[in-house]
Design a protein around this nucleic acid. Structure first.
Lengths: 348, 348
DNA sequence: CGTTGGCACTCGGTAGAATCGAGTGCTAAC
DNA sequence: GTTAGCACTCGATTCTACCGAGTGCCAACG
């Protein structure tokens, strides 16, 4: 019915862009459909509300904004948010208080990697007022730096592998044989010698040593570590500020959608692969229907990878309603990812 | 106005008890205030609704039930739930499907302790339809069974302690000195010899060895482990099924209360000490206003400790609305705690 | 031709009135 | 002590009227 398609990346003239920007910013702030008067009035574009109305009809026809019902104000569509993100968020804005919170956190941060990432997710959540996600470095790339076997009880041995990235993998083994300290120690040093420097996900088969019990133990250890790699191939995910999801529930359709989101976040595997997919496509912000997952239809995801020693290591990100302050969020995510990378490069 | 107080543990006559029971069970099922007709009708106590009404007035005066507004049906008070729990839940009821789910889970369960506890919380949440909590064994009681030091980079050493309960503690140290492998190894075996068998929370000071760098390292390791104990004195908490909280939100007053609950659950320390306090007082079920924490005013907590080798080890529990099926929940929590203890006794 | 003021129209949101019905308390009869 | 009958209460639901922000359209203007 209208003129031709609305999917090409048509550039808006300056005034329409300004109007779209005003609609987005106003709607993000007030959560109410914004009308032509408010745009014309409180913004410094010197035109009347009638003119704004005319442009708005065009913007609506192009798919950037929509009305929740006939003759109400306009709210941005996902496409509208997309335009906003692509054109008006180049310089990340971050309030001083928040910038300081981030700086302070990384000043004093210190601890085991897991704790650090966990607390980083809480920080990011606090700073953005949204749910935050932190994906840790993938454990597979790490190399073995130490192997230790400890007899917990007779017939029960704990196998521990220390990795080059500071992670520790462990597995409790139940053995058919009861080994003495010397045998366990022999197995441990054999394995350590064999695997030191190897990638944890590609441990080679231990050669026969002559002692059957030791060999069984060694093979059991390799099997256990292999199982760990197989069962937990994914990077660790840390989620902070889940309570924000229900606090933002006003922005979502129903209370059910909040439930579904929480459920989604409990499935680490899904989230991690989602994040990875997005990032692989070079996407940093994914808005509403751009997400393939049904539950995320009203959500936006903002991601930023962090680098350790120049290498891609992991991702920090935020999950919130499409109606979010993108500038602030993008700024915060960028700042945290950068600082986290810096800290890990220093310590790691 | 009425007769004397209602706080003494007055026992109800048989019919009143049956009526109270009916009110609780009906209300838990339908979420609607239950009237005298429904109680008289669908239950097998052969009396008319008028008689039920009379007894209900007494039950209300005694504080077991209340009406949300004048001349509506009755709903249980916290005291009413308490009576129900104390008198009608002796034999834990658990549906076959759920009993089987628990059995299956513990049949095939196997993995690192952390993963096991985490998945146990998810299992318990699935089985009960409520949010589940699992408190792990407290790490302090564990003894050191192995110490390892690994040089990750020059000047950066990872200290690892393997404990008798299968836990592994680690800390990344940045050192002023750059030590070679021999020195690090010497320090490690010195510490291992010194600390083997000691409680992790009471590591003694390493004696001087003659090599200043090694001594600095040893002292740094002790400091780091001490810091770990100090900063993470609590047992680990695993929470599963947080999404249930908002799904149950209908049972709670406002959406805000759900937010507050989620926030509460993010503070491990608070939850762990709450659980510990309750259990110290021998409480297994805490209902509504019995909880001291404001956010839990509409919640009930069902707990069961689990034992490893006969010793108290940790706790599993459930957090849900006061309006929950206590029999089913108590049964499930009991079953899971028992099985978990059994599994850990076997493996650990 | 783009811009503007004017104007009839739309439609969600709110307030008030009417109605419904489950459930109660009370009383009198059994 | 139990029960049937009855007047009454009060949340929930429905309906109506009304308000007002906001639109689309048109005619006038520079």
């Amino acid at each position: 019915m209208g003129p031709m398609g609305s999917t090409e990346p048509m550039d808006l003239d300056e005034r329409k862009a300004a109007i779209l920007r005003a609609v987005v910013e106003e709607y993000v702030e007030t959560a109410e459909p914004v009308g032509s008067q408010r745009v014309a009035g409180s913004r410094k574009l010197g035109v009347s509300s009638a003119t704004v109305r005319n442009d708005m009809t065009v913007l609506e026809r192009e798919g950037y904004i929509t009305q929740p019902y006939t003759s109400a104000g306009r709210i941005p569509t996902d496409l509208g948010y997309r335009y906003f993100v692509d054109h008006f968020t180049s310089e990340g804005a971050l309030r001083i208080a928040q910038r300081r919170a981030v700086a302070e956190f990384f000043e004093s941060a210190h601890r085991a990697l897991e704790d650090l990432l966990h607390e980083t997710s809480q920080l990011l959540s606090r700073v953005t007022d949204h749910t935050a996600m932190v994906v840790g470095p993938q454990p597979e790339v790490a190399q073995v730096r130490g192997v230790q076997l400890v007899t917990l009880h007779p017939g029960v041995v704990l196998a521990v592998a220390v990795l080059s990235n500071g992670a520790v993998e462990k597995y409790t083994l139940e053995l058919p044989d009861v080994l003495d300290e010397a045998q366990v120690g022999a197995a441990a040093s054999a394995l350590e010698g064999l695997w030191n420097g190897c990638a944890f996900n590609e441990l080679c088969e231990p050669p026969p040593s002559g002692d059957d019990a030791i060999d069984r133990l060694a093979r059991a250890v390799r099997g256990a570590f292999g199982e760990l790699v197989a069962e937990r191939p994914m990077e660790m995910l840390y989620v902070g500020g889940t309570s924000r999801i229900v606090a933002e529930h006003e922005s979502f359709a129903t209370a059910e959608s909040a439930t579904h989101l929480l459920e989604l976040l409990e499935h680490q595997v899904v989230v991690v692969s989602l994040v990875r997919n997005l990032l692989d496509q070079g996407v940093n912000v994914s808005i509403g229907s751009e997400n393939e997952i049904e539950e995320l239809r009203d959500c936006a995801i903002v991601l930023a990878p962090y680098r350790v020693e120049g290498e891609f290591a992991g991702t920090v990100g935020v999950l919130g309603p499409t109606r979010m302050d993108y500038r602030r969020t993008i700024g915060a995510v960028a700042a945290v990812s950068q600082q986290l990378g810096r800290l890990l490069t220093r310590v790691d």
